[in-house]
Amino acid sequence: MIYLQLLANGIVLGGLYAAIAAGFSLVWGVLNVINILHGSFIVLGSYIAFFLYAYAGLHPFLAIVPAGIVLFALGWALQTVFINRVVTAPVLITLTLTFGLDLVLNNAMLVAFTADYRKVNLATPLPALELGSVFIPGDKLAAMVLAVALTYGLYRLLGDSNVGRAIVAVRMDREAASLMGVEVKQINAITFGIGALMAGAAGALLSIIYPISPINSTLFLGKAFVVCVLGGLGSVPGALVGGLALGLLESLGGYALGPEHSVTLSFSLLLLLLFVRPSGLLGRRGYE
């Protein structure tokens, strides 16, 4: 049955989209910063995984850890040095700043790695899962499970840890959190670091699925935007729901209307949702 296959494709794709968008959503929701760097962070994570596999034989699934650490440090430093200075300015200012930083990072990657396409070709790929007529690629499924696990990890971090609760407090009311003794600037830097960490980890997972090149960063950024608006800003479950919704929509819609319309379809839905439910499927009013 072709619809079961399309459903499976959509769910796998959706899990990956959730990981692409989770960090972006967190940064947007908490800091009110539209982080244009997010796509380049993902690509940088992919490169870290690629080089670790090529030169050290480290499996990209394990490269999540070093990619996450490097990106966390980079994100933390960028927030501390640059973005904290303007974080309370209108959103256009921070957008312009991250746009500029993205130009620097993306062009630095073009110089360092060139625009040539690279791809991790695993020596021993996982076998595909065959359930009747439904065919699920093993590595893609494993990457999706890890992506969902990471997203869940972020969700627990926000709910269960002191840092997480401080992040949520800053998201709800910056001034009140500050009065309660939360070091807002420090929390900002940690939040941005976690956003970058999620991007780096997602990039490591994606390195086995998509070709790697600095010029793919805008494609990832576009997906993150749509997922965030679909699911609701600043909400981790929202990223998961938005990711799954977009994955299923592209899969089923792409089949029903032809693959050339799948992108049009997702952006049409985005527009529609902005009209009827601007807070997203799971977003709460006042967070956006």
Partner: peptide
């Protein structure tokens, strides 16, 4: 005979159709 949009990263819908 299917066409895909410029900038698409995921072809799984078209390739599922191809397999059928």
């Amino acid at each position: 005979f299917e066409r895909y949009a410029i900038g698409v990263l995921d072809h799984s819908a078209a390739i599922t159709q191809m397999r059928a």
